[in-house]
């Protein structure tokens, strides 16, 4: 993880705390729809492309309604792409059977499935990012806990997130100190590395100890209680219901195809 990633996580955090119709939806409804969305997208056969296109409506709609800058989501996708891209690029090498032709261009099965992989990547990643940017970590964690995630783990997520910023500040301070006193690259010898990371570790553990003291001072007994969350309203039910029906329809019928056929029928 590089320093730039920290500004990124801060940016996501800011987005998550905005106010929009999407942010106001119950996190559980969004989590549910997003999970169904991802499973549906991945359940398509490997050569499918056109039927996947209508699925774009979901992340794009969410991102637009949440007023999240599209550029931001795209940038994050590009950064995350290499692994899927690399493995996907192998497909055209191994699967050379011609599959379909677009004008004079003949596409092999490998290329079709590669494009399909890219499409899936865009869909699943943008849906996940939209969920987080349109909900915020706190609401997401509290929502997951109410969906049945073990409380110990939900609190672990929230604690980790809370102290990311504090501990990374400490790490950045340590690194600044090192850079001021050394020339050349940021990479260190193993011995220096061990003592720096060890220092950071000990400081972190001391901090955990002080946090524990502060928790105990306010009556902590091993159980963490959260404030009562809002009850889901009809808005959430409508959102979840409509999204699920539309996603289901897009899974059962190839909507792009239907549109194409309908148009073709109309033209001739």
């Amino acid at each position: 993880m590089r320093l730039a990633d920290w500004t990124e996580i801060g940016r996501m955090d800011e987005l998550g705390r905005m106010d929009s119709p999407v942010h106001r939806l119950d996190p559980r409804a969004k989590v549910l729809v997003s999970l169904v969305f991802i499973v549906l997208v991945m359940s398509f056969p490997r050569y499918e492309i056109s039927a996947l296109v209508p699925f774009l409506f979901y992340p794009v709609g969410l991102i637009a309604l949440a007023r999240i800058p599209m550029r931001h989501i795209m940038k994050k996708m590009l950064i995350a792409a290499p692994f899927a891209l690399l493995i996907g690029l192998v497909n055209p090498l191994f699967d050379r059977q011609p599959m379909c032709s677009v004008g004079p261009l003949e596409l092999s099965g490998g290329w079709v499935s590669f494009i399909s992989i890219l499409f899936r990547f865009v869909l699943t990643v943008s849906a996940a990012l939209a969920l987080v940017a349109g909900t915020g970590m706190y609401r997401l964690g509290a929502g997951l806990e109410r969906l049945g995630l073990p409380r110990v783990f939900a609190m672990q997520l929230l604690f980790l997130y809370r102290y990311l910023f504090v501990i990374s500040d400490e790490a950045a301070r340590i690194m600044r100190g090192v850079r001021l006193r050394s020339v050349g690259s940021g990479a260190l010898g193993l011995r220096v590395y061990g003592s720096l990371v060890g220092q950071l570790l000990l400081r972190s553990m001391d901090r955990a100890d002080r946090i524990y003291q502060a928790m105990v001072a306010r009556g902590f007994d091993g159980e963490i209680r959260l404030l009562q969350q809002s009850v889901p309203g009809w808005c959430d039910a409508v959102f979840a219901g409509c999204s699920l029906i539309l996603l289901g329809a897009a899974r059962v019928w190839n909507l792009s195809d239907l549109l194409g056929i309908w148009l073709a029928g109309g033209v001739s």
């Binding site: 672990q156 929230l158 790490a171 955990a208």
Partner: peptide
């Protein structure tokens, strides 16, 4: 409880070094 959270943050932060 706090130790686990802070250690998770530490692993993240440690990757900066």
């Amino acid at each position: 409880v706090p130790l686990m959270g802070v250690m998770g943050a530490f692993v993240f932060a440690g990757q900066m070094i």
